[in-house]
Nucleic acid binder design. Structure first.
Lengths: 212, 212, 212, 212
DNA sequence: CATGAATGAGCATTCATTCAT
DNA sequence: GATGAATGAATGCTCATTCAT
């Protein structure tokens, strides 16, 4: 669109392209096993050029995570207040979105990497926790709490119940995406989601006749 | 207990000491960021001595995992058949054992490492899946299925329900052990377990009056 | 002469410089006792730079030999057919060239190294044998055979006679170049050559009166 | 034969057994590639025991060579004076002995090793030259000179003619033993020896009609 | 600005030598 | 004396980072 020389074509997109490339490689080979040169090649630029945008390999990783974290953090915060709908509907919507998104290995890659490299990048892990986990958990907690307040859910400990909301999802992803568990069977994400939601809501729902 | 009367300067259990040291370091810094020399130092021997027991750094990692996997695999298989008790009791017992064991960072370290390095050691990940996950999941599935057969649980998909049994536990461990989430709060493992079990069983229990 | 207009900090011939440096060092200290860092230093570059041109120390050695072998192999094959001159003249020419060339330690170094490292690099030894020895020996055999056919030489076994052509040369080189034999005396290569040629031709020449 | 405990059985032979073992290994893998532990194992003793007899790996090599050199040096010196026979007969005898001995890889190994490691052990190379080469060459030179003096050989330069005596032998050994040249053909050592001797003697013999 | 040649600290691994048993 | 566990210097190789072109 511009009349600049060819090589400047998308100079402003470069950093993002580098991060995309790095993400792909980090996700498949891990941070340590990925060479800066590999990233450069994957991004279609030279090794030296990488250092125009990022001051170190570590910084690439950090930028990568922060870039992925930002929108999630924003969204997560809004969700809880935004809707006035039935908490069950909201939970199902959230879980659906989550499972769809996270079934994309490219998206799952970031939390996976944070998990992998938490030891080497404690600060990053902390950032992730603060920006993503704290907010995400708080959002879900709020929804559950509203359900309790509205009498739709039983008076459980909302904060702890969050683990029952996200846990099965996490387990499903670990098993299917990382350990290739059940690779041959035909448990679609939808099947899982139905099952999870059914058990979750049934678990949260107050019933006239509770047994000790 | 000794197999050979041959002497050892100080050990027969050197290999185990090396694995213990390696586990500590791998767990805190990751495989790649841990130097063989660090392991040696942590184990109180010299770099060269490591290679008397293990032929490579990779082999240390693999031995580490296999050593941890073996007993778990055995136990997991037995659990399902062993008991004829109320499936709810069994599940609670299992979850209690699991959370107690896995709250020990030294024990959590192995699955965590497998998760971390699955990309670099696909074979090991597969071994772990086969030996630990397949069996563990099968054991739980069997218990749930028995509960269903005995009318104690609703007729859910037992295979998928397994994720609801282990997922919250996984989520709890990730949050608390790895992301130091809730570090300041006082959610004891017991609190979590009560909450999880309550929701889980309530979710699995058939109620006279189900609402759409 | 340049193949690509791409720039090089200082070279295009770095690989050759590395091989030259390696040759000098391998020749004087042997393959095993030569450190890659030594080669780098001798070549005036850094250790790491070596690996831009050669993937391993072994590869340096192999390249070294192959570089030296190629032109020899070519020449050797041509010699036998090229000339129609008196076989005695050809032999003398060949021996003269050989002794002049091989008296240069830099040139002698390669066959010497192949000899030294034949055990460690059997494949390389075989390559050398095939490319250099087979052809060289065949060329000389052909010349001797022609001399026999033309009645200039006695009807000896040409193949075995080759050893009498090259052997004294080999012995001379081993003694003088490697064992510093006769270092103080004044046997010039020319003196040796005259002596060798005289004995060789006299040995090959038919005489009217042979004595038992 | 003695009533000492088993392990002392042949304590005095140990050093020689170590040298035998070392020779076998050095010959097949080279000095650098042979581990002291390998030598110990091959000799049937422990690594530590090696150091009771030799203070270092280098010393093993040096002892090895010196042990082999001693008898050769002695014999070589005697040969020239000992016999009053026809120099041609003496030469043939010597060459026969030489080729028979040196066709045994175990015996060829020492000169081969000296050649290989001359760079790393210059002193040893010098010793070898002094003890073996100087004497051997002098012995042959003397025989040739006597032949000249007695009118059996032409008045050649005896010192240089030595190369024509031993050279073809050296060439034959290098080609056959080290480069596996002619492995498939059937040039027996005897065939070679006949050929060499025929050419050598014919070359040394004065003929009534010499041609320019 | 872009490039990729060059650097050199860093690390896994080997092995001659020592020495506690 | 004999053993082999332990040591640690040595070395090949890698790769993040720099910088001449």
């Amino acid at each position: 669109m511009q009349q600049e020389p060819k090589w400047r074509r998308r100079a402003e997109d470069r950093p993002d392209e580098v991060l995309d490339a790095a993400l792909r490689l980090f996700a498949s080979k891990g941070f340590a096993a990925t060479k800066v040169e590999d990233i450069a090649q994957e991004a279609g630029i030279s090794k030296g050029a990488i250092y125009r945008y990022f001051s170190s390999k570590d910084e690439i990783f950090e930028s990568l995570v922060r870039r992925a974290v930002a929108p999630i953090a924003e969204r997560a915060s809004k969700i809880a207040e935004t809707s006035r709908e039935d908490p069950r509907i909201i939970l199902k919507t959230l879980l659906t979105i989550a499972i769809v998104k996270l079934s994309d290995p490219e998206i799952l890659a970031v939390p996976r990497l944070v998990l992998q490299e938490a030891g080497r990048f404690p600060e990053l892990a902390e950032t992730y926790r603060r920006e993503v986990l704290d907010r995400g958990v708080a959002a879900i907690e709020k929804i559950v709490q509203r359900g309790i307040d509205e009498g739709i859910f039983r008076p459980v400990n909302a904060r702890l119940a969050v683990r029952n909301v996200i846990g099965p999802l996490v387990a499903h992803l670990l098993l299917s995406q990382i350990f290739k568990f059940d690779a041959e069977r035909i448990d679609s994400p939808q099947d899982f989601l139905e099952s999870h939601f059914d058990l979750l809501i049934n678990g949260l729902t107050p019933h006239t006749m509770e047994e000790g």
